[in-house]
Every structure is written in structure tokens, then in C-alpha cells.
């Protein structure tokens, strides 16, 4: 019979006690920062891929199509492994040193020079210090961002195509170049169409960062997994872990409603679904790509 330890659940659920563990403190920061950076990367790549896909110039179109095809057609987890282990072992990109910091508050960070996967694996078996593998965070962020770009491409393209072609014609007739017209006329209007699905994508992104556990990137799920190897209380710990994600996505959905409302205000558009519907409609329960 499994002994459900309420004390463990409470200890790791309640931030003041949970944050005493540097794994969780760092994990939360890594999850949020990686989500934001990867999403931003995804938006930029998505914009270029969308423009490439709509380009008259065939090589651009082929490149964009190939990018979208590959990154939507293969698992993110595999892409992540490819990015981390593949780039590392071929020295296409040498990931930086592993950071090791002592658990005591205020203890100095020290750096261990390590490039190979071997050292990485050895390091994670040490249970006392906090080990942050910067390279894994970089690789994870890159994989998440590039993967996201392939999905954002479709969202951005749909946004651009939702704008009346007459807008581009009018802008061109006034002497604007394609780039000017995109930047000043089409994209600002398309933003209203792009932002709601973009918000949902970011919601997914925060949850999908948990896949980085596989490459030991030190985010939230990794943190809870590490603690579990010590305590072996998976039920309590993963309930606690899930609650952290729930708090993050809920905070985001509040921010999202605000952003969408402010976008709609200037043109006097009607408001979208309220916060309550949004949280409980299941619209962000779609899971990882």
C-alpha cells in the first residue's frame, strides 16, 4: 500500500518551502525564460517562413516549405536530441561549460569545464550540488524555438492572408515598398488575428518545455524528477509539479486576455471570450506538438 505523504506534497507545493530547494527555484526560472525566448524565436522564424512560403521567388518558397515540412513532421523530442547530442558530438557547436553551484545560499558558482556527454552523465548522478547544464538549455531552447517557428509560420500566414489584398494595393499605390507595406499596414492588422493563437501557442510552449527533462536542461520537470530520485515520492512530487505548470498557464491566460483586450480597444472591436470561458473551455489543453 502506497503511503501518501502529505508533508512531502505540501513541502514542494508551498513556494516558501519549495523554493528552499535550488533545483525548483532554478527550474522555475529556466522554464519561464526558455518559454519566452523559444516563443520569441518561434515568432521570428514563423514570420520569415510565412513570408518565404508566400514569396514569388521559388527558392524561398522551397526553403520555407522544407523547414515547415521537417519540423512539423518529426517529433520535437527527437529534434531536441539531435540538436543537443548531434551538434555536440560533431562539434558543429560546442556547448558551453556546465555550471555547478553548491546548494548553500550565497555559495559561489563554480564552473566545470566539460564538453562531452560522458561528463554530463556522470555529473547528474551527483546528488548534492545543483548542476545546470547551460548547453542543454541552449539546445532545448533552440529546438523548441525552431519547432515552434514551423507552427507559427501557418499562424502568421493565415493572419496575413486574412487581410484584404486591397490594403496591400492601397499601400503600394501610395509608393510604399513591399517591406514598408508589410511592416506598417498589413502586419499591424494581421497581429489582431495572430495574437490569440499565438497566446495559445505560448501556453503550450510553457508545458512543452518539460520535454527538456530528457536532455537534463534543469527546468521544472527535471527538478521534480531529480527530487524524486532522492525521495521516491512520485505521486506527491508530480502532483506538485503539475500545480506549478497550472499556475504558470493560468497567470498567462490572465495576461493573454488583457493583451487581446488592449489590441481590440483601439479599433473598437468587440471583446473575445472572457477569462472564465478561456480558462475552462479546454482551449489550452491541446498538449505538446
Amino acid at each position: 500500500m502506497y503511503h501518501f505523504d502529505w508533508a512531502v506534497l505540501w513541502q514542494y507545493l508551498w513556494p516558501p518551502t519549495a523554493f528552499q530547494d535550488p533545483l525548483i527555484r532554478t527550474g522555475l526560472i529556466v522554464t519561464v525564460v526558455v518559454s519566452v525566448v523559444a516563443q520569441a524565436l518561434g515568432v521570428i522564424l514563423g514570420l520569415f517562413a510565412a513570408l518565404g512560403k508566400m514569396s514569388k521567388f521559388v527558392p524561398f518558397r522551397v526553403l520555407a516549405e522544407a523547414y515547415i515540412w521537417y519540423f512539423r513532421g518529426t517529433p520535437l523530442l527527437v529534434q531536441m536530441a539531435l540538436m543537443f547530442f548531434g551538434l555536440g558530438v560533431t562539434h558543429i557547436y560546442d556547448f558551453p561549460d556546465i555550471l555547478v553551484c553548491a546548494p548553500a545560499a550565497g555559495a559561489p558558482l563554480l564552473t566545470v569545464s566539460a564538453h562531452s556527454v560522458q561528463v554530463l552523465c556522470n555529473a547528474t548522478t551527483v546528488d548534492s550540488p545543483l548542476i545546470l547544464i547551460i548547453g542543454a538549455i541552449q539546445a532545448g531552447t533552440l529546438a523548441l524555438g525552431i519547432n515552434e517557428g514551423a507552427y507559427m509560420a501557418e499562424i502568421v500566414r493565415a493572419g496575413i492572408e486574412s487581410i484584404d489584398p486591397g490594403q496591400m494595393e492601397a499601400a503600394k499605390s501610395l509608393g510604399m515598398t513591399f517591406a514598408m507595406a508589410m511592416r506598417r499596414i498589413v502586419l499591424p492588422q494581421a497581429a489582431k488575428v495572430i495574437v490569440p493563437p499565438l497566446g495559445n501557442e505560448f501556453n503550450n510552449m510553457m508545458k512543452t518545455t518539460s520535454l527538456m527533462e530528457y536532455i537534463s536542461a534543469g527546468e521544472l520537470f527535471f527538478a521534480f524528477n531529480q527530487i524524486n530520485t532522492r525521495l521516491f515520492q512520485p505521486f506527491e512530487l508530480f502532483i506538485a509539479a503539475s500545480m506549478y505548470y497550472l499556475v504558470l498557464t493560468t497567470i498567462w491566460s490572465v495576461i493573454q486576455v488583457r493583451i487581446e483586450a488592449s489590441l481590440g480597444e483601439r479599433k473598437g472591436m468587440e471583446r473575445g471570450p472572457g477569462m472564465f470561458e478561456r480558462i475552462f473551455s479546454g482551449s489550452f489543453g491541446k498538449g505538446a506538438h
Binding site: 484584404d164 486591397g166 490594403q167 494595393e169 492601397a170 499601400a171 503600394k172 499605390s173 501610395l174 509608393g175 499596414i185 492588422q189
Partner: peptide, 14 residues
């Protein structure tokens, strides 16, 4: 085109 003004049937205001 900057030297040519155009007015459209559907206005096409921004």
C-alpha cells in the same frame, strides 16, 4: 507609384 494617386472602389483605407 508615389507619383500616381489611386482611389479605389472599396476605399481601402487603413
Amino acid at each position: 507609384r508615389a507619383e500616381i494617386g489611386m482611389v479605389f472602389q472599396r476605399f481601402n483605407l487603413f
